[in-house]
Amino acid sequence: MAFEGLSERLQKVFSTLRGKGKLSEDDVRKVMREVRMALLEADVNFDVVKGFVKQVRERALGAEVMDSLSPSQQVIKIVDDELTKLMGEEAVPLNKAPHIPTIIMMVGLQGAGKTTTAGKLAKYLINNDKARPMFIAGDVYRPAAIEQLKTVAQQVGAPVYEEGTDKDPVEIVKNGLAQAAENKNDYVIIDTAGRLEIDDKLMDELSRIKELAHPNEILFVADSMTGQVAAKVAHGFDEQLDITGVVLTKLDGDTRGGAALSIRSVTGKPIKFIGQGEKLDQLDVFHPDRMANRILGMGDMLTLIEKA
């Protein structure tokens, strides 16, 4: 059955191993095959899975037997530990500039959720930091992108700097920053058009915006339903822009979200926020441990282990 979590898978394996006090090498191999399958079905990138499984296998074989845990629980704990470690262990806050404004630039593939997340971030900053953010409408390509941003901006009560769709986005950003300086906005959020990481011309446009604006934060916005290609795309954006953080969107769906692990693993950049809905207050700080649990589908098993 597809989409079985690791809990269900492992329960099956362990029903054949019942009564064993300690895991043999063969047992570990069986278990790791299930872990591998669970990760692949969660869309974790193949190469990332390979490295991860190797790491866990070594630790599982060398592990001391803990009396309080059954062998299955012990492996799960190791998997969970390693996964959490890989995903960054702790929430990383947004970068802040020493002098205002802090400049945040949103980048990513088409339809990932950049514009919506820009709105959510502004709302988050207004609520938590009493911020006075301003948006810059840097997407001159997508039909009605500016209308969308303006509607979002109005909902959060922040101004938008825009120059329509005929100007070069780099020029727009330059003028927008001057405007923000004049208005003493403490945050500037730059919305950019969605683009493919293999689109040299549009990627170069982002590089030029970056050079001009010196953003404190370049947030790569990624759809959590993305498949194997997530690693390649994230690597492409990171290589060309040296991103500073990641926002994972659409986690209100039923995806396991393995893209999170792939992206984190190939870029090494922290996932800072997750999007959990279309509404502007549906942005949450990222917690690596919860994500680990979700990717593996470990359900209640983990809670049991935590108590042991």
Binding site: E41, D43, M225, T226, G227, A230
Partner: peptide, 11 residues
């Protein structure tokens, strides 16, 4: 369907 979607596309 977004061509870059993974296994969630089945769901």
């Amino acid at each position: 369907l977004d061509g870059s979607t993974g296994q969630n596309a089945l769901s």
